[in-house]
Computed example of a mutant assay.
Amino acid sequence: MRQACPTRQLFAVPPPLEHISRPDCPIAQEPRQLSNPLKDAVARWVAHGPDLFLSRGTVEILETELQPLMPAGTLLLVEDMLALARRYQQVSGVHELRFRLEKIDHDSCRRFHVDQVPLRMLCTYAGPGVQWRHASDQLIHKTPTGWLTLLKGRLYPGWGAAQAVLHRSPPLSGLKMPVTRLLLTLDHPDVCGMN
């Protein structure tokens, strides 16, 4: 009998974002393809934008803070990120949020872990996406660029270690060509680093 290719499971799609409130759903993802104009805006940010933008506030405050930092041709990216911030507000129930946009060109967070947050949304706009696995399984899933990932952290009400999903940034040092990731992280406003 022929065995299935083990890499077929690397792009497993967990339930949609709205299912994250279910007790049996520690991760939710939404597949999406970045349009060519959005990819161009991402490339411009990677080339000319700040290495790190970190702030806390409402979507309106974040928009005001982002506007003077936008390189030419990146409005589409900023609009997309603010739309994701609004979705995070809806799913998490928070009015304010922590917004972190970072260029990453090194090995960052190489170890699989669970965050000390209630709920975290990740979107990798450039470079390889987040890697994740169930605590009970060693199979590593690789998230495609552009996909949305919503993860329950240790502070989520009713969180349990048995159903935990661990994640990490993909290691970049082993790649043949240098890569710069552009990662958006949306969190509860009171997470570590904002006080």
Score class of each variant (00 low, 15 high):
Pro16Glu: 00
Pro14Glu: 08
Pro31Ala: 09
His48Asn: 07
Cys5Asn: 13
Gln33Trp: 08
Pro37Gln: 00
Pro16Cys: 03
Lys39Asn: 06
Pro6Glu: 06
Asp40Arg: 09
Gln33Cys: 12
Pro14Phe: 01
Ser21Pro: 08
Gln9His: 13
Pro31Gly: 04
Cys5Gln: 09
Pro26Phe: 01
Pro50Asp: 04
Leu38Pro: 08
Arg8Ser: 12
Val46Gly: 02
Glu18Asn: 10
Arg44His: 11
Ala41Ile: 03
Leu10Ala: 14
Gln33Thr: 10
Gln29Gly: 15
Cys25His: 02
Ala43Leu: 09
Ser21Cys: 09
Ala43Gln: 09
Pro6Leu: 00
Arg44Ser: 10
Gln9Asn: 10
Cys5Arg: 09
Asn36Thr: 15
Val46Ala: 00
Pro15Lys: 06
His48Met: 06
Ile27Asn: 01
Leu34Asp: 04
Glu18Thr: 13
Pro26Thr: 01
Gly49Met: 05
His19Asp: 15
Val42Cys: 02
His19Ala: 15
His48Cys: 06
Pro26Gly: 05
Ser21Gln: 11
Arg44Cys: 12
Asp24Ala: 07
Val42Ile: 02
Ala12His: 15
Lys39Glu: 15
Cys25Met: 07
Pro26Asp: 05
Ala41Pro: 04
Arg32Cys: 11
Asp24Cys: 00
Ala47Val: 00
Cys25Ser: 07
Trp45Gly: 04
His19Cys: 15
Ala47Ile: 01
Pro14Trp: 04
